[in-house]
């Protein structure tokens, strides 16, 4: 919704519930959250030194065992997966036309309503669109001044393939 972007950015255009989460875009708050996470980790680590943890498996009882495993396993999984991608990533059209990767999801199965349209039409219209027959009143062309390019992700097949 490029044309509606500025409007949507203001908290007033958003659903009330979403306003509680706007801090997610504020880097300074995100930094604080990360700090809290780091403090929580530190507390958990200290607690592990103090509290007795019942261990079934040899080594499991070592303080910080789960902390180290959590951090190292996660890191190795992500790094390993990155290496795996170098081996196995192919163009979206690799299996085309026998695979759904290259095609966009059929329009009939969706109800691509923007938040702006939902506010304009009221929530109840949302349920009137059957799966197979899109409701004409909700067609993009009638409500948007320009065609909404960002929604039609699959139309331009050739543009973003990795190879």
């Amino acid at each position: 919704m490029d044309n509606n972007d500025s409007e949507n950015q203001s908290p007033n255009g958003l659903p009330p519930m979403a306003r509680h989460f706007l801090w997610a875009d504020d880097m300074s708050v995100v930094q604080k959250v990360i700090k809290c996470l780091a403090i929580l980790c530190a507390i958990l680590f200290v607690l592990d030194l103090i509290l007795h943890r019942h261990a079934y498996v040899p080594g499991e009882g070592i303080p910080g065992f789960y902390a180290v495993v959590g951090f190292v396993a996660f890191t190795l999984i992500v790094l390993g997966a990155t290496q795996l991608r170098r081996l196995i990533l192919r163009n979206e059209h690799f299996y085309a036309p026998y695979s759904v990767d290259a095609e966009s999801y059929p329009e009939e199965g969706t109800n691509k309503l923007s938040h702006q349209e939902q506010v304009l039409l009221g929530d109840k219209t949302v349920n009137q669109t059957p799966d197979k027959k899109p409701n004409k009143t909700l067609d993009h062309g009638q409500l948007d001044s320009q065609p909404n390019k960002t929604y039609r992700d699959g139309d331009n097949h050739q543009e973003k393939g990795p190879r």
Binding site: I34, L37, F71, G161, P162
Partner: peptide, 26 residues
């Protein structure tokens, strides 16, 4: 501990730019 330190690893990897970006492909 397991989950929080794994989350910490995620933050670390994102900061270092080591987390694989989402790219189209098969």
């Amino acid at each position: 501990q397991l989950l929080c330190f794994a989350l910490l690893a995620f933050v670390f990897l994102m900061r270092k730019g080591l987390h694989p970006p989402e790219v189209r492909g098969v």
